[in-house]
């Protein structure tokens, strides 16, 4: 590769690059890179492949399967597992799934609405105290979410909010990073000249926000919505700490509890097949969402780092 043919003109350089020996080297390298890439895909997919295979097995098949753990058993029992999953403890799994949806949607939508309003306000209004409050907000991006769990728990137990849906939803509304993203985006996406022009035409601040700014902010809104829904859907520590009624659990906490039950020595219930099928069912919605909404998240996730 180090054949430094310093060309006299760009044209000659291109011709040299396209000629025989160099080209061959160029062809072989994509192959090598493709193999590395395939290896990576394989690694990232193995656990999910295992999950799909294991969800078709009975408890016995999980331990002493006929074809090893990465291939299907003789005895495929996917529907039996599904039926058992939805009937276990009076259909508690469906309740957990519903709770996860409820928490993720209300928390995600709420956090996004707050972030859009605040981000736009920070970007486009030079109000007094803006710089100080934005610095405070930037600092809070650095406060880890889990560091807030115990403080939130002690505060909520003082006001009797623990073990209600609000104990999960309210903390999910807080998304300083979303506000930051929105401000960075709004700064350039909504030109000041456009706002001024609308103002001269007699449009009020609310009208400017709803009919001019909002459409321009759409890509950032999609990103913040996605990020906060995923964050709430994946949340484990917070609901684990603030909820004690199994009927209020999201899927993550519920499955964690089944795992503890099954692993408990002796008197434990053997729910292994339910944990596996339950895990599979619960990851399907988000994976589908990500695969089908590609064009919304692929550009957006990098907003924070591109500046």
């Amino acid at each position: 590769m180090a054949t430094t043919l310093v060309p006299s003109t760009p044209k000659a350089g291109r011709a040299a690059a396209a000629s025989g020996p160099r080209r061959e080297v160029g062809e072989r390298r994509p192959l090598f890179r493709s193999i590395v890439l395939i290896g990576m895909c394989f690694y990232f997919l193995v656990p999910l492949w295992w999950l799909i295979v294991a969800s078709t097995k009975t408890v016995n098949g999980l331990f002493n399967g006929s074809a090893g753990s990465l291939w299907f058993d003789k005895n495929i029992d996917l529907f039996g597992n599904l039926a058992q999953l939805f009937n276990q403890s009076g259909g508690i799994y469906l309740q957990w799934l519903g709770n996860s949806f409820l928490y993720a949607l209300t928390g995600g939508v709420g956090a996004t609405v707050l972030a859009v309003l605040a981000g736009y306000g920070f970007a486009k209004y030079a109000f007094r105290g803006r710089n100080v409050s934005f610095a405070l907000l930037l600092g809070s991006v650095m406060v880890p979410v889990t560091a807030l769990v115990l403080p939130t728990f002690v505060l909520f137990s003082a006001i009797g909010l623990n073990n209600t849906i609000w104990a999960v939803i309210l903390p999910s509304l807080l998304s300083p990073f979303g506000v930051y993203l929105m401000r960075v985006y709004a700064q350039d996406a909504v030109p000041d000249e456009l706002i001024e022009a609308a103002r001269i035409d007699g449009a009020g601040d609310a009208k400017i926000f709803f009919s001019i700014a909002l459409p321009l902010l759409r890509p950032a809104i999609a990103t913040v919505l996605l990020l906060s829904i995923v964050a709430t859907w994946n949340n484990y520590f917070l609901p684990l700490a603030v909820l004690s009624d199994p009927k209020l659990f999201p899927v993550t906490v519920g499955l964690g509890q089944w795992l503890q039950l099954s692993a408990a020595a002796g008197g434990g219930q053997q729910l292994w097949n339910l944990i596996v099928i339950g895990a599979l069912v619960s990851v399907i919605p988000l994976i589908l969402a990500f695969v089908f909404l590609q064009r919304y998240w692929q550009g957006g996730l990098s907003l924070g780092s591109l500046k």
């Binding site: 990232f44 656990p47 795992l259 596996v276 990851v283 969402a289």
Partner: peptide, 24 residues
């Protein structure tokens, strides 16, 4: 395709990720 495939674990809750690897 691999851009999407490699990203997919992000869509899997941490609880489930830990669970699957724990089984493996």
């Amino acid at each position: 395709i691999s851009r999407v495939l490699i990203f997919i674990p992000y869509a899997v809750p941490v609880v489930i990720g830990a669970l699957m690897w724990g089984f493996l």
